[in-house]
Amino acid sequence: MSRVYLPSLGPDSWQASLADPVKHWRVGYSARTLAHSWEKANGLPFEVAAMFEKPAELLVALPEHKVPLAGGQRDSQSDVFALIRFGEETCAATIEGKVNEPFGPTVGEWFANPSNGKRLRMRQICDLLGLDGVPPLDVRYQLMHRTASALLEARRFKTDEAAMIVHSFSPARMWFADFERFAGLFGMAARPDQSVAIVLNSGQRLRLGWATGNPEYLSQ
């Protein structure tokens, strides 16, 4: 994977980085909607900036950023990885764009009859998240590995905190209950358009947030 990133020429520049540039680039779906929202903001979208208690500034955004995890060749690919400055601190954030698409398989579905590679990956993720073992089977696995990716990149870039933010454009807030369930693993009470933060046993600070995007981008 190349470590060289080129400046974006607009929303269509994001399409080439998708796993399936044809199937995933559709009006009203998360990849295209997210691209238009972030490009129009020319920085942090207002609702994402609102996840931070202090004025927040986007330092760099990397669409479809891949983070290697243990136990296999398939990386965790975030819709956006963002380095964010807020006040005198910095944050490494993975952004998960959503419209009506679900968060993928549950832990129970993904970890059924696990291979050695899956066991190794689950152990790494649980260690990063500060979990004692495999979480309840109804938790969405995607939320786990996206958050683990943020924690890994926060260590790599030596930021003050890591964040996993769901940037949702669903008017009905579809799948918020799954996010709320995940936040509950850390004793967090999730609320739409607010963030919550804790310090993990590792000493890393973790922020989780659900940001409601502007629905006007669903038609672009």
Rank of each mutant, 00 (worst) to 15 (best):
P7G: 07
S8E: 13
S8Y: 01
D12T: 11
W14A: 07
Q15V: 06
Q15A: 05
A16M: 12
S17Q: 07
L18E: 03
D20Q: 11
D20H: 10
P21E: 14
V22H: 14
H24P: 00
W25F: 10
W25Q: 09
W25A: 06
W25C: 05
V27Q: 02
V27E: 05
G28I: 02
G28N: 10
Y29V: 06
Y29E: 14
A31K: 12
R32L: 13
T33V: 13
L34Q: 10
S37Q: 12
S37I: 05
E39Y: 15
K40T: 15
A49E: 03
A49G: 10
A50I: 06
P55M: 04
A56E: 07
E57V: 01
L59Y: 01
P63R: 03
P63C: 02
H65V: 01
K66D: 14
G72Y: 07
Q77H: 08
D79E: 01
A82N: 04
F86A: 11
E89K: 13
A93F: 00
E96S: 15
G97A: 15
G104W: 08
P105N: 06
F111I: 07
S115G: 11
N116A: 13
R119N: 09
L120S: 14
M122S: 05
R123V: 00
C126Q: 07
D127Y: 03
G130W: 01
L131S: 08
D132S: 10
L137C: 05
V139K: 08
Q142D: 01
R146D: 12
S149A: 15
L152K: 10
F157P: 03
T159E: 09
A162T: 07
I165K: 05
S168G: 04
R173E: 15
R173G: 06
M174S: 12
W175E: 07
W175Q: 09
A177C: 09
A183F: 06
A183D: 04
F186Q: 07
A190M: 11
Q194D: 06
N201A: 13
Q204G: 04
R205S: 10
G209A: 00
G209T: 04
G209Q: 00
A211I: 02
T212V: 08
T212C: 13
